[in-house]
Design a protein around this nucleic acid. Structure first.
Lengths: 338, 338
DNA sequence: TTTGGCACTCGGACCGGTCGAGTGCCAGGG
DNA sequence: CCCTGGCACTCGACCGGTCCGAGTGCCAAA
């Protein structure tokens, strides 16, 4: 078992390494932290910590750096989430308050997170899985061409073109529009399929094909939109990574362009509580030297989407977690208001 | 004036340097290109080229590298746009053909360009300045809350929420919707303002406030949407830049996140002809060691937006230009069809 | 105008020595 | 039992010197 002081040593190592980016030795530690013991003692502690796998030395006779396991222990037991300063909080508020629509909220959130944490920010658009239908609109663009517009309660709008198998009259269209809305408005996406299942039957034979087509496009849209989209920013912060650039940064940039990978990353944060994935805990191989701090955010008590940052394993965890949490909370408020 | 052979020497220097990324000397040149003269002669030519500012040496007794001016001359006079190979062309077609909607076309185009050129790709969403209104829809979400949906002939959809000053009846709504559409459908954005100017007058006094509000939101949307959005991809290719990473790559990444900067870059390509901006020709200071190859694309004969790539000044201009042009043409076709 | 020859320059690679930070181990003291 | 100071050892970073080769500029001859 690790004594109190050993943990303290680990904390000191993490803090120093995060700050200096250089392996930290026993002497430097005792000078910069009031541990109350001599370097020699610290060395012994370090030896134990190394044996347990919390720290490692890059090469013999060099200082120690934390391992993934060390960071893990640090964020789990040793680090308090650092609340933001007053000015920072005010900056968040004023910056997000001036957003004009949903897209803008997301865009601003990304920039904000990137600036606050000086890392790469990732924000998922509010999810539709739990959201409800506010309105479905059908427009006739040409005799056999319709446009479907789906509006959600999170303020998102999706549209699809529909080529009908047969011309579709204005009256039939109005009819379909009315019936569709009366059935699905206010309902959750997941409930929609069964609610519209029998709809084609109530139409004239000649219109049934079109109605079915419309419905299938609608359902498809619901499903597709459940695959969330996201926005990233602050990639320039990757240049602060280390000195061995090309090798480190390349796979990260590649991973960041793969929506799927990112969605998985964020998705792993289960509920609305904060999740920290460190180094090799990230399945994706390009991200084994990065950490992901993610948290759910939402308009009410339920989380509707995730946001977070991606940075080097050597990052300021308390500060980053504080910023991520604060931003998530305030975005939630914004969404609840609108 | 520069003799024919001197130009040939410049061309050889550019080609070699683009390939090897290393300063090229007189001897190497004569070996790799059939210039029919000795290294000594080439040296003399090089001296002249250097005096004229087309090439430079990084340090004394090193080979020469082209200057921005040298690249300029190269693309203007010495380089033929390299047509794509058959397989490449087929790849473009099959990749873009499977796009399902406008967003998808843009997304695929970005990925395609990034892959083909192995550089950073930038694609502007089709512009609305020259496009026309296909449909305007008004939905009643609550007694005093409307949603405006604008559909353009390029397949783009924009929506806005409207808070009305007074409740607005369904019949008035239908009325407004009908009149609005009869006036603006098929018209260009720029013509819309005067076409709807007198619309409020034809309504009952109690509805006029709402009608005005709706119209102002519509006009606002038209203007806002003229500010184009764009999509970028292939940033991982920046890692192939050079060996002196952080310094070079950082400002580029920053510039790429500034929509304004990028729009300006693309915007400088005046009409639909291809534009190449080399090094310092780019106003933005972060991009002084990059070149931008851009071209307009459009559904008909008019260009509705731009696309292009950003890469190091030392890039394969003929190949890049070929790829950019080919992609632009085919995207144009796709847009024309849909 | 081209060519071959020649002296010169300079950056990069290589080598060896020194320096200092850091370690592990051990014996002694609270 | 744990902490401490001391000591020998290791190893990377740094520095200066040397060597090598690529490349240049100049010049005289063809």
């Amino acid at each position: 078992m690790l004594s109190e002081r050993r943990l303290e040593v680990l904390r000191a190592i993490v803090q120093d390494y995060v700050g200096t980016e250089e392996p930290v030795g026993s002497k430097a530690l005792t000078e910069r932290h009031r541990l109350g013991v001599s370097p020699a003692t610290v060395r012994n502690d370090m030896a134990v910590l190394e044996e347990e796998g919390f720290i490692a030395q890059p090469h013999t006779s060099a200082g120690r750096i934390p391992t993934d396991k060390g960071y893990r222990l640090f964020v789990d037991k040793l680090a308090a989430v650092k609340p933001l300063s007053g000015p920072e909080r005010r900056a968040i508020h004023s910056f997000l308050d001036s957003a004009v629509d949903l897209d803008d909220v997301v865009a601003r959130t990304v920039r904000l997170l990137a600036q606050l944490t000086r890392q790469v920010a990732v924000v998922q658009y509010p999810s539709l899985t739990r959201s409800t239908v506010r309105h479905v609109e059908l427009l006739s663009l040409a005799p056999a061409r319709l446009m479907l517009v789906l509006i959600t309660d999170t303020g998102r709008v999706e549209q699809r073109m529909i080529d009908c198998p047969a011309p579709f009259g204005e009256t039939s269209l109005a009819d379909l529009r009315a019936r569709l809305n009366s059935r699905v408005v206010g309902r959750r996406f997941t409930d929609v399929p069964q609610l519209v299942q029998d709809l084609p039957e109530s139409f004239e034979a000649e219109d049934r094909g079109t109605v079915s087509t419309v419905l299938s496009v609608l359902l498809e849209t619901l499903v597709e939109e459940t695959e969330e989209r996201l926005m990233i920013g602050g990639t320039a912060n990757l240049t602060r990574f280390g000195h061995d650039f090309p090798l480190t940064i390349r796979p990260v940039l590649e991973a960041l362009e793969e929506q799927v990978v990112l969605l998985k990353l964020l998705g792993e944060a289960k509920d609305s509580s904060m999740t920290v994935r460190i180094g090799h805990e990230n399945a994706h191989e390009g991200l084994t030297s990065t950490s992901v701090v993610a948290v759910g955010y939402g308009s009410g008590d339920e989380a509707v989407a995730k946001l977070g940052v991606v940075g080097p394993t050597r990052m300021d965890y308390p500060g980053t977690m504080g910023a991520v949490r604060a931003v998530a909370r305030y975005v939630g408020q914004i969404l609840a208001e609108s």
